[in-house]
Amino acid sequence: MKILVADDSHTICTLLRRCLTGAGYDVILAHDGKQAVELAKSELPDLVILDIQMPEMDGYAACEKILAINQQRERLPIIFLTKRDGEHLATLGSEMGAYLQKPVCEETLLSTVRALLSRSSTTSV
C-alpha cells in the first residue's frame, strides 16, 4: 500500500516515513500542498496524510484537488494531521477519513491508517 505524506516540516516527514515504512507501507513525501497534488496525480496513493498549514497550497485546497483527481472520494481516505484544533476539523476528518492532532503517537497513527485502508479496500470490492 502506498501512502502520500504532505507536511512542510522535514522532521515530521522523516518521523512519519520511518513509522510507516517500518509497518510495511510505501511512503511518498511532499513538502507543500502543490507538490502533494502533483504526486497524487503521478503516484496514485492508497491513502493521503495532509498537514493543513503548508506553503504553496494549504491542506484544504490540496485535499479538494486530490479528490478531484481521484474522483472516487470513498476510495481515497485522507488523514488531516495538524497542530490545529477544532470541532470543524473533527467533522472534516470524519468525512474524509480522519483527523489527528500533532504530536500523534505511532500506535494511534498506525491503527488509524490500518482502519482506513481496511475500510477503503472493503468498499472498493
Rank of each mutant, 00 (worst) to 15 (best):
I78R: 02
V27T: 05
I69L: 15
A62M: 06
L117Q: 10
D85W: 05
R73D: 11
L20A: 00
I69M: 08
I3W: 04
Q101V: 12
I79T: 06
K102A: 04
E74C: 11
T21M: 11
T108L: 11
D32P: 00
T122L: 15
L39V: 03
L15G: 11
Q72A: 15
Q101D: 04
R119L: 14
S121T: 13
V125I: 15
V37L: 05
E43P: 05
P103S: 12
Q71V: 08
T112V: 09
S118N: 12
A40T: 05
A36M: 08
D26P: 03
D8M: 07
I49Q: 01
L4I: 11
T122P: 00
V5E: 01
D58I: 07
I66N: 01
M54L: 06
Q101A: 09
V27C: 08
L81T: 05
D51R: 01
R73Y: 08
A115T: 15
M54F: 02
H88S: 14
T82C: 04
I12P: 00
K83I: 12
T112D: 06
K41C: 10
A61K: 14
P45N: 05
G22L: 08
L100N: 00
A6T: 10
S9A: 10
V27A: 09
L109F: 04
K65D: 11
E38I: 11
